[in-house]
Design a binder for these strands. Sequence first.
DNA 1: CGGGATCCGTCTTGATACTG
DNA 2: CAGTATCAAGACGGATCCCG
Lengths: 117, 117
Amino acid sequence: MNQLKRSPCPIACTLDLVGDRWTLLVIRDMMFFGKQRFEEFLESPEGISTNILANRLKLLEDLELIEKQPYSNHSRRMNYQLTEKGKSLRPVLKVIGIWGLKYITDTKVLKTNSLDA
Amino acid sequence: MNQLKRSPCPIACTLDLVGDRWTLLVIRDMMFFGKQRFEEFLESPEGISTNILANRLKLLEDLELIEKQPYSNHSRRMNYQLTEKGKSLRPVLKVIGIWGLKYITDTKVLKTNSLDA
DNA sequence: CGGGATCCGTCTTGATACTG
DNA sequence: CAGTATCAAGACGGATCCCG
């Protein structure tokens, strides 16, 4: 997402797409906490702001990692859901979480089974 | 590194430490390409600039993910090496690289065995 | 020459207020 | 509720300088 000078390195390219401060947290919210709506993401303790959230949701949609659907035909409520491609990031988030649990004190899994397969 | 409002989430905390545009690339250079000197990091195709590199090296030292030693007693040449804690990030970089290889076209491992255990 | 530090202009990010 | 507009703060890129 950040337009590094491109190299073919898969690590650099992946970080280029999702390696910023917020993107993976949005995916975490969807993947481990089942969040699907704009407001739910805003409630996370890290405190993403509305414009950043809107921007990241759009980027994730462009990357086809998430899909947006109207919640019903009556309201403006939107539903964001991970695509299969998005779900494929689970091992990435999982290993990041495992590292944090081991090397950063006072971290803990917030919800039972959050880091389960 | 970026002072998110703290949550105990291990994913958020880990991203807080190394989840920026450059930090993991420096670690990649050390881990997979064996780079150890300031100038070597500068040569990577992503093109980090000197002030950013100096900043990240210092942050990584503060986090005890790398160690800095004088190359010899005669010169100013410095040697940066991963600590055990730093090396523990290998699974993280590896899974990120594997994801990139699978989901981003035109990425490839740049050096034989780069993603090996 | 290698390893930075510093300054400065630009681009990106983010907090807040506001809108449909 | 789900965003957009605005504007300030911060991150970054590049040049330059500095020091051993």
